[in-house]
Nucleic acid binder design. Structure first.
Length: 568
RNA sequence: UGGGGUAUAGUGUAACGGUAGCACGACUGACUCUGGAUCAGUUAGUUGGGGUUCGAAUCCCUGUACCCCAGCCA
């Protein structure tokens, strides 16, 4: 990984607070210089850009400090989890470019060990089987300001607890009939410490263990044990688990096993974006988007389909930093990262989204010239290609104005512009239909300017992209805007929810677009830049006969900005 | 009202008792066969109030604001 920079880079690079802890530990020899992290998703949904922050933190730290990072599925709740999610998560983490080598783990593989440790906890008098119902347990818990009351089953003998717990495992009791709870302190100011449930009865098939188990460990019990078993040194999680750390520590201390350090950091928030699984699900279920990989979704699948590169997302995760307080990153920063990467790597190509026909009156009928075009000015190694030029062309409707203001540099009656890699052309005549709509431009070209330079040294103010009509390929192009009209989609009037802020124009589908013939065999997810327009990515909906492109992000456009300002 | 956290330009993030810096955004300008890219510049900040100190974003006291916690979810 590029992050692996050993000593040299580590000195100059500023460390976030998590890396600072890791660096200090390496220095002090706390873990014998070992660094071992993990990314522990629950396989109950698709990964999104917020997970990418966590992934890059965990894998990034391991890479930077010469350590290891495991991919571990925290699959302790059979009711919500599915193999499909496991597969997609594996795919997404790998797509992002991280490698867990042979360390793909599942919490469910540790169920037996966890069970044995629970028995040990009972034997130490630190856990008991409780017969209270869920509702009763809730009432006994007390409130934020009032202490709880102890369960009447709290003082059962160790023998009885052992027996009952064994029978829980054996399936003697129905769902919810009993739980195993830690014996801590019902008046603890931290509610998590008030005799938390550590096993519940769930007669449900697990996606990996099938019906082997009918009791399942709770997160607080399971997570630290998973970390301990794997020899994790730094257990990095999000802020809402801060309140759980005393419990994490309590369990590991009670068992006197390897005890990693839990460190909490703030989740990612992005403007114009929702990150909650529940709300993203709602968008899918209520058909506000086409699916989990809709290019407007912040899921990694959505971003991939939109055309984001793994590098751009990793760069973004690096540049946003890590902290302990809630903040909201400007979506423009994500756009900056993707433009920066795609500018370096994307082959340029010419495409006309809203075609306006141009006929060159003085160009020979039937003649076709194949002109040389540069594939990527940022990367000479990308080479060149040939694009066809002939009498009938298409240019962008936006590139012509009949009554052009001074600041409009493009084509207008009597004005001369350059067609990229081709010739200077001058607009002689505007052809309209009965309604007055412009349907065609008659232009003349200057044969002396072949390739794009005038021998007499005269200049033009603009260079337009174009496509030769006869050789052009038809394409569908999907233009995306923010899914929400507000920076904070949750900001709503009374009685409304976030769906009130959905942007009705977040997707615009253009058909009859014209693209240059070199795009003929474009593969799905192939990225390119449409010159002067933006970065695009072939959608998986593309077929041999029908090309479909998604716009990832526009190029920065000072003319568009100018126009926007004037409208206001 | 209990407990646990956190506050630095518009946004994000550094500064670890010693010149408040960087990035994004916004705004100028230069350059350009992409109104792209690139380059140069401008803009703007320590949550309030006390204190310690030659010196405080940093240490102390005290307000204020925001986030998290009462699942047999993670």
């Amino acid at each position: 990984m590029t992050e692996h920079n050993g000593q040299a880079g580590a000195e100059t690079e500023r460390l976030d607070f998590v890396r600072q802890i890791v660096a200090d530990d390496c220095k002090s020899g706390k873990w014998d210089g070992r660094v071992h992290t993990r990314f522990p998703p629950e396989p109950n949904g698709y990964l999104h850009i917020g997970h990418a922050k966590s992934i890059c933190l965990n894998f990034g730290i391991a890479a930077q400090f010469g350590g290891k990072c495991n991919l571990r599925f925290d699959d302790t709740n059979p009711c919500k989890e599915e193999q499909e999610y496991v597969d997609s998560i594996i795919h997404d983490v790998r797509w992002l470019g991280w490698d867990w080598e042979d360390r793909l783990y599942f919490a469910s593989d540790y169920f037996e060990q966890m069970y044995q440790w629970a028995v040990e906890l009972i034997q130490k008098g630190k856990a008991f089987v409780c017969d209270l119902t869920a509702e009763q347990t809730r009432r006994h818990r007390g409130t934020l300001t009032e202490p709880g009351t102890e369960s009447p089953y709290r003082d059962r003998s160790i023998e009885e607890n052992l027996d009952l717990f064994a029978r829980m495992r054996a399936g003697d009791f129905p769902d919810g009939a009993r739980t195993l709870r830690a014996k801590i302190d019902m008046s603890h100011p931290n509610i998590n410490m008030r005799d938390p449930v550590i096993y519940r009865i769930l007669h449900a098939a697990h996606h990996r263990t099938g019906d082997t188990w009918c009791i399942y460990p709770m997160y607080d019990w399971a997570h630290g044990l998973e970390d301990s078993i794997e020899g994790i040194t730094h257990s990095i999680c999000t802020l809402e688990f801060e309140n759980h750390r005393p419990l994490y520590d309590w369990f590991l201390d009670a068992l006197a096993v390897h005890h990693p350090q839990q460190i909490e950091f703030a989740r990612l928030n992005l403007t114009y974006t929702l990150m909650s699984k529940r709300k993203l699900l709602r968008l899918v279920q209520d058909k506000y988007v086409s699916g989990w990989d809709d290019p407007r979704m912040p899921t990694l699948g959505g971003l991939r389909r939109r055309g984001f590169s793994p590098d751009s997302i990793r760069k973004f995760c690096k540049v946003i930093g890590v902290n302990k307080f809630n903040s909201t990153i400007d979506y423009a920063l994500l756009e900056h990262c993707v433009r920066e990467d795609l500018n370096r790597t994307s082959p340029r190509v010419m495409a006309v989204l809203r075609p306006l026909k141009v006929v060159l009156s003085n160009y020979p009928d039937g003649q076709v010239e194949w002109l040389e075009a540069i594939n990527n000015p940022e990367d000479p190694a990308a080479g060149t290609r040939k694009v066809p030029f002939s009498k009938v062309l298409y240019i962008e409707q936006d590139d012509f104005m009949e009554d052009a203001p001074k600041k409009f540099f493009r084509l207008a009656p009597g004005r001369e512009v350059r067609l990229r890699y081709a010739y200077f052309i001058r607009c002689d005549e505007v052809v309209k239909d009965a309604d007055g709509t412009i349907i065609e431009l008659r232009c003349s070209y200057d044969p002396a300017t072949r390739g794009g330079d005038a021998p007499d040294g005269r200049k033009v103010k603009a260079t337009l992209h174009w496509v030769a009509a006869e050789q052009a390929l038809d394409a569908e192009v999907r233009l995306y805007e923010h899914l929400f009209t507000k920076e904070d989609p949750e900001q709503t009037e009374d009685g409304q929810d976030f769906t009130a802020n959905i942007n009705p124009d977040s997707l615009q589908i253009l058909t009859g677009c014209k693209v240059e013939p070199s795009l003929k065999d474009t593969e799905p997810l192939q990225r390119c830049q449409f010159e002067r327009l933006g970065y695009f990515c072939a959608d998986p909906d593309s077929t041999a006969g029908k090309l479909v492109f998604n716009r990832t992000v526009t190029l920065k456009d000072t003319w568009a900005k100018l126009q926007k300002k004037q409208k206001k």
